[in-house]
Amino acid sequence: MINSRKGYDERVNAGRAIPLAPERDLDDDPAMMVQEQIARIKFLDEKSSIRDRKVLDLGCGTGFNFAYAKEKLGSKEVTGVDISSSAIAYAKKIYPAGSFLQGDICSQNFDCGNGIWDTVICCEVIEHVDQPQALLDTIHRHLRHSGVGFVSTPNRPVFSLGFEPSPVNHTHVKEFTLDEFRSMLEEKFSKVEIWGQRFTNDRLFKMQQSIVARNIKDYRLLGEWYWQDSVRRIWKTLRCEPLQRLWGGGLKYSHGDFAFANPVTQDSIWLCAFVVK
């Protein structure tokens, strides 16, 4: 069940990026949230290579960052940590060669090797915790002096059209604006560089925004019933969404449909930050 204080759901497929075809090449996986993350990790590697690097993945979820970083990008070592026991169990099952640990990454007592990691990844996690500064403390103390942290989060004015609580993901505790995100990071790190992740195709961006606007209307109408799976299935059926998808409609994209902009543009759906101690 949902733990509202921690901002996570023990069900593996609830609010997490999960490969729909883990036996296939991740670059071709049909899950859009997986494709969003592949775009990020490829961008990280382009800006700060993780080849032959020791990588710590905080909030690793279903573990596919491990497979991508090791098999595609040549990382030396990748360890994933998540608070969810079901997510870690899934990651160990699908990627048996991986190193995955269950732990509270916001705890002051969390220690996965302080000061030894070349790269610390924390993608789409900080919006799920009620102590974001504690999470940033964890990133800071685990990075080696010359290491690079990579932190991403939804850009609230675009991702959720500024609506709170998020109409997109019910496990988001707090989404941030660019200024809020930058302020938090600059309190902890000596260098902060923020990029915006955006669609290269304006049609995809407009479709994403229209879906969020529709979700907001649904949430206002249904309240917390909006997050009940059975209610959502019925509601979507009444709106003929399954038929639309069957006929090829709906939002579909891959990692190649994204670009990264600095300075952050007004159509940036996510914020991606490089940080150093």
Rank of each mutant, 00 (worst) to 15 (best):
K6D: 00
D130R: 09
N3P: 00
N155Q: 09
V129Y: 06
E10Y: 07
S146A: 12
L243Q: 08
S268H: 14
F199N: 06
D130N: 15
W117C: 05
L271E: 04
S48R: 14
K70M: 15
L161G: 00
E23D: 11
S190F: 01
S152P: 06
G61C: 10
P263L: 01
R232W: 05
E71G: 10
T153M: 03
R156A: 14
G223F: 00
R203L: 06
A87M: 14
V148K: 15
G59M: 13
I88L: 12
P167D: 02
I83S: 09
K188W: 02
R141T: 05
I94C: 09
Y226A: 04
K277Y: 09
A39K: 03
S85G: 14
N201G: 01
A134Q: 06
L222N: 11
W227D: 03
H128Y: 12
A134D: 05
R214E: 15
K191W: 08
V34N: 11
Q108R: 14
K70C: 12
T171Y: 00
E46F: 08
F199I: 01
E77K: 04
K42A: 14
I139A: 04
A67M: 06
G7A: 05
E124I: 01
V125L: 07
S86P: 03
S75C: 15
N109R: 13
S85C: 10
L238T: 06
M1I: 00
I50H: 10
I211F: 08
H170A: 01
K188E: 04
A67V: 07
I194A: 01
Q266A: 11
N215Q: 11
L204W: 09
D179Y: 03
S146F: 04
A31P: 00
H170E: 04
Y8K: 11
A21D: 09
Q133A: 12
I2P: 00
D179P: 00
Y8H: 08
R239N: 13
Q108D: 15
V192G: 09
N169V: 04
P96K: 07
P263Q: 01
C122P: 03
P154M: 11
V158L: 06
S84E: 12
A97N: 15
